[in-house]
Amino acid sequence: MGQNAPHFKIELLPPHREKVETTEILRQTNKSTAALAELKGIAKTIPNKAMLINAIVLQAAKDSSEIENIITI
């Protein structure tokens, strides 16, 4: 193998149905749907959703800067 040869084989997309539609994945999908529905219901009780979203974005930017060792004042 040459220097530029990949170390793994990438499968074509989309994956075969048999690989994706397993019992385990479908059960987890149901749990995830229920959790998202609960979150949607709770989110409706927040008076100013933009404040929460902005706080999350700011925290993500701060964490990213910390990882990249960027100092901002």
Rank of each mutant, 00 (worst) to 15 (best):
residue 41 G to R: 15
residue 10 I to E: 15
residue 31 K to A: 03
residue 19 K to E: 01
residue 38 E to P: 01
residue 52 L to T: 06
residue 60 A to L: 14
residue 8 F to G: 02
residue 73 I to K: 13
residue 19 K to S: 04
residue 61 A to S: 07
residue 22 T to C: 01
residue 35 A to V: 12
residue 55 A to E: 12
residue 9 K to S: 04
residue 9 K to F: 00
residue 42 I to A: 12
residue 37 A to V: 05
residue 13 L to V: 10
residue 71 I to F: 04
residue 21 E to P: 01
residue 34 A to V: 08
residue 40 K to R: 13
residue 10 I to R: 14
residue 16 H to N: 11
residue 2 G to F: 04
residue 68 E to C: 03
residue 67 I to K: 07
residue 60 A to G: 03
residue 54 N to M: 13
residue 17 R to D: 05
residue 69 N to Y: 08
residue 5 A to K: 13
residue 26 L to Q: 12
residue 24 E to N: 09
residue 18 E to L: 11
residue 24 E to A: 15
residue 16 H to W: 04
residue 4 N to K: 14
residue 62 K to W: 06
residue 39 L to R: 15
residue 43 A to H: 01
residue 26 L to N: 06
residue 41 G to V: 02
residue 14 P to Q: 03
residue 11 E to Q: 03
residue 1 M to Y: 08
residue 63 D to M: 13
residue 41 G to S: 15
residue 55 A to F: 10
residue 52 L to M: 14
residue 2 G to D: 15
residue 17 R to V: 06
residue 27 R to M: 13
residue 60 A to C: 10
residue 9 K to E: 03
residue 60 A to E: 15
residue 3 Q to H: 10
residue 40 K to N: 07
residue 2 G to Q: 03
residue 47 P to L: 10
residue 57 V to P: 00
residue 66 E to T: 08
residue 12 L to W: 02
residue 15 P to E: 07
residue 48 N to Q: 10
residue 57 V to L: 06
residue 49 K to R: 15
residue 14 P to R: 01
residue 13 L to H: 04
residue 26 L to K: 15
residue 6 P to G: 03
residue 2 G to M: 07
residue 71 I to C: 01
residue 14 P to V: 00
residue 56 I to Y: 13
residue 72 T to D: 04
residue 67 I to Y: 09
residue 12 L to N: 11
residue 18 E to N: 13
residue 37 A to C: 05
residue 11 E to I: 02
residue 38 E to F: 07
residue 19 K to P: 00
residue 44 K to S: 03
residue 51 M to N: 10
residue 50 A to S: 09
residue 52 L to I: 12
residue 15 P to Y: 07
residue 2 G to I: 06
residue 50 A to M: 12
residue 55 A to G: 03
residue 55 A to P: 00
residue 30 N to H: 05
residue 41 G to H: 12
residue 68 E to P: 00
residue 43 A to M: 11
residue 66 E to Q: 13
residue 61 A to F: 08
residue 69 N to Q: 11
residue 17 R to C: 05
residue 23 T to E: 12
residue 5 A to S: 10
residue 65 S to C: 06
residue 26 L to M: 14
residue 7 H to K: 15
residue 19 K to I: 00
residue 41 G to T: 09
residue 57 V to S: 04
residue 37 A to L: 02
residue 34 A to P: 03
residue 72 T to F: 08
residue 41 G to I: 05
residue 51 M to V: 13
residue 20 V to R: 01
residue 61 A to K: 07
residue 49 K to Y: 03
residue 18 E to K: 15
residue 1 M to L: 03
residue 30 N to Q: 13
residue 21 E to N: 11
residue 37 A to H: 10
residue 39 L to M: 12
residue 73 I to R: 05
residue 48 N to V: 13
residue 52 L to K: 04
residue 33 T to M: 14
residue 66 E to L: 13
residue 57 V to Q: 08
residue 40 K to T: 04
residue 46 I to Q: 00
residue 70 I to R: 09
residue 66 E to N: 15
residue 54 N to R: 12
residue 46 I to W: 00
residue 7 H to P: 01
residue 8 F to T: 05
residue 72 T to E: 02
residue 67 I to G: 06
residue 49 K to I: 11
residue 29 T to K: 06
residue 44 K to T: 08
residue 61 A to C: 05
residue 13 L to W: 11
residue 56 I to P: 01
residue 10 I to P: 08
